[in-house]
């Protein structure tokens, strides 16, 4: 069994290895100019240089701070919005249609408007990222609360729970899986938007590193940037995944039982 798993894993490495090998071959023999596709080994050296000089860390820190700020603001506002829409019917009636329209407008469309209002500084990036993070969070919170089985609510009503207590003990735990999904989507959205914001208007940040490298014709640095943002995105998602397992452990046990 173990050997079987090992070999099936190996199979998955086959194509990437083949791609890297042909990439190496193509670059060495200059079938594709190295200006467009630098050698994989060069990429590693470039990454190491960027790491050593602290350039990468400094810019990553900047991007992560922006994501942190935007995500925190966006997710909290999104959670509140989703909750009020989910809990109070009148709010839903009046607010949901408006929300439903605005959530479909791609966040990118707000860029020029935000640029006019906020300039190209830090505020623009934070607000822009928050705008993107609000939507999935609000939607998933709303859906989660809506999805609470009415039977739960009836039981609770029979016990004459207060509104707040009902929310805390019944609605929130029951909506939690959906809320956590919202959190995850929100974070990955925020991570994508920070790159986008930095491409459009930047001082520092990993997106800015890529743009500068592009302008100085350093394709290897651009490629390193792509890898770095992919890995970072992956790690952030995994962290939230861990959080989810922790919070929802009880659910799983329940399911097993």
């Amino acid at each position: 069994m173990k050997i079987h798993v090992f070999f099936s894993r190996l199979l998955g490495l086959l194509i990437p290895l083949f791609l890297v090998a042909s990439w190496h071959y193509l670059s060495v023999h200059e079938v594709v100019p190295t200006t467009l596709l630098p050698l994989p080994s060069v990429l590693f050296d470039t990454w190491w240089d960027m790491q050593k000089s602290g350039e990468l860390l400094l810019n990553m820190k900047m991007s992560l701070l922006r994501v942190g700020g935007g995500f925190l603001v966006g997710a909290s506002v999104g959670f509140l919005l989703g909750t009020v829409m989910g809990v109070w019917k009148p709010v839903e009636l009046y607010l949901y249609p408006v929300f439903n329209f605005f959530r479909q407008v791609p966040v990118v469309a707000w860029i020029p408007f935000l640029l006019i209002w906020l300039g190209i500084g830090e505020w623009f990036k934070i607000v822009f990222i928050s705008c993107g993070a609000i939507i999935p969070m609000a939607l998933k919170t709303f859906e989660g609360i809506r999805g609470v089985p009415t039977s739960y609510l009836e039981v609770v009503r029979a016990f004459e729970y207060g509104k707040f207590r009902m929310f805390r003990t019944v609605i929130l735990p029951s909506a939690l899986p959906s809320i956590l999904t919202g959190l995850r989507i929100s974070l990955s959205e925020a991570w994508m938007l920070v790159i986008g914001a930095e491409l459009v208007a930047a001082g520092e940040g990993i997106g800015n590193v890529m743009i500068i490298a592009r302008r100085l014709f350093q394709t290897d640095v651009v490629l390193v940037g792509v890898v770095v943002i992919a890995v970072t995105g992956f790690i952030m998602d995994k962290l939230l995944d861990l959080l989810e397992t922790r919070f929802l452990g009880w659910r799983r046990i329940q399911n097993v039982q």
Binding site: I15, M192, M210, L223, A230
Partner: peptide, 25 residues
């Protein structure tokens, strides 16, 4: 088994991150 790891890796790149690379290419 052949392709899933590759696509899973590529999928981690936020789509916008491809922009500078695509411009160079």
């Amino acid at each position: 088994k052949l392709f899933a790891p590759l696509f899973n890796a590529l999928r981690q790149v936020p789509v916008i991150g491809w922009i500078p690379l695509i411009i160079v290419w």
